[in-house]
């Protein structure tokens, strides 16, 4: 059996275990037979109406952020890039909060208005950040991109605070949401982002070989026959769709897009033909587990899941940065 088959089997098994842990553990413990034995109405309700939607949503959000992170890192050849560090998550938040703030509802879009505006926010921020970074430093060095992401993230964060301060009570709940959480969302949210997760992931997956080529630089990719302009646009749009949809339902959850691709790469290599799919699965597993920890660690209260991911992610970020600089210094 070759290495990539092992990688898929291990990742899939991890995901199954994570899902099961996610639905079974909690204030009420749910035994495995509840899945098919619906006689205990109360347990079945908890499983299908409360736990499962939450786990599935956490999985979709984690998967979206992770695959987007993997693609951004490959595209920018920047191991520190992810939707959060690039400021794209903040852009998506602003898009989402604006929708609520101005009570925007576009008839044609219906319930998709929120994720669509979130995606637009993500995409706009993305192009602004990259455009500005290129303006500052044509070589688009790692630090330049991350610094630009921080500048835009900070600015957009203050825009968010301003909007929240200007509104009444009902938007104050948004603060909790902004910290990143997948709690009490129900199936409707899952359905709201599912199509976007599929489209975004597909856009990235179609560019798996192009991403491999672009790891060697855009010039090299052109030499290998990649239509770089078109492919780059596809990847950025795909990443924005994924980030936007994730943020629309769960707020800004940092570092998932950084940690997961990095770990996956360490274990299974940097080949995007596998890295994208594996990051998708592992991202789902990680966020499901993080969410489980977030709601059980100080039970009966809950922590926003963003706290847990930042707790793991920030040290990993520091470690990657350290390693890159050391390598650069040698």
């Amino acid at each position: 059996m070759n290495k990539s088959s092992v990688a898929y089997i291990v990742s899939a098994a991890t995901l199954v275990v994570a899902v099961w842990l996610g639905v079974s553990i909690g204030t009420v413990k749910i035994p495995i037979q509840t899945l098919w034995d619906g006689t205990d109405q109360k347990l079945t309700n908890i499983l299908w109406k409360i736990r499962m939607p939450r786990v599935v949503l956490a999985g979709l959000v984690g998967a979206s952020l992770a695959i987007a992170g993997a693609a951004f890192q490959g595209l920018l050849k920047n191991p520190l890039a992810d939707p959060y560090t690039l400021g794209v998550s903040s852009g998506a938040s602003v898009g989402a909060v604006m929708t609520l703030f101005f009570s925007i509802s576009i008839p044609f879009l219906g319930s998709f208005t929120l994720p669509v505006f979130s995606m637009i926010g993500a995409a706009l921020t993305m192009f602004l950040v990259l455009g500005f970074a290129r303006l500052v430093d044509r070589a688009m060095r790692m630090e330049t991109i991350i610094l630009t992401g921080i500048i835009f993230g900070a600015f957009l964060g203050s825009v968010l605070s301003l909007m929240i301060a200007l509104t009444g009570e009902e938007l104050r709940q948004v603060i909790g949401w902004l910290l990143g959480s997948v709690s009490m969302r129900g199936w409707s949210y899952t359905m709201m982002i599912l199509p976007f997760v599929c489209i975004g992931s597909m856009l990235l997956w179609l560019n798996r070989r192009e991403l491999n080529a672009m790891l060697f630089g855009e010039e090299r990719a052109i030499h290998l026959g990649v239509n770089v302009k078109q492919r780059k646009f596809m990847i950025l749009i795909g990443g924005s769709i994924l980030t936007g949809s994730a943020v629309a339902v769960s707020g800004t959850i940092g570092f998932v897009g950084l940690v997961v691709p990095h770990m996956t790469r360490l274990m299974w290599g940097a080949d995007h033909r596998h890295l994208l799919t594996l990051s998708f699965m592992n991202g789902a597993s990680l966020l499901i587990i993080c969410d489980l920890v977030a709601r059980t660690i100080i039970s009966p209260s809950e922590l926003p899941v963003g706290v847990i991911t930042a707790f793991i992610g920030a040290p990993v970020f520091a470690y990657i940065f350290y390693r890159q600089r050391r390598r650069g210094a040698m």
């Binding site: 050849k77 920047n78 192009e210 491999n212 290998l224 990649v226 940097a270 080949d271």
Partner: peptide, 20 residues
């Protein structure tokens, strides 16, 4: 020759030549 941020294996690198 220049440095790369991420590492491909030798086989993966050569295989990219088949892209076109």
């Amino acid at each position: 020759l220049h440095a790369h941020a991420f590492s491909h294996s030798v086989w993966e690198t050569v295989a990219l030549g088949r892209y076109p």
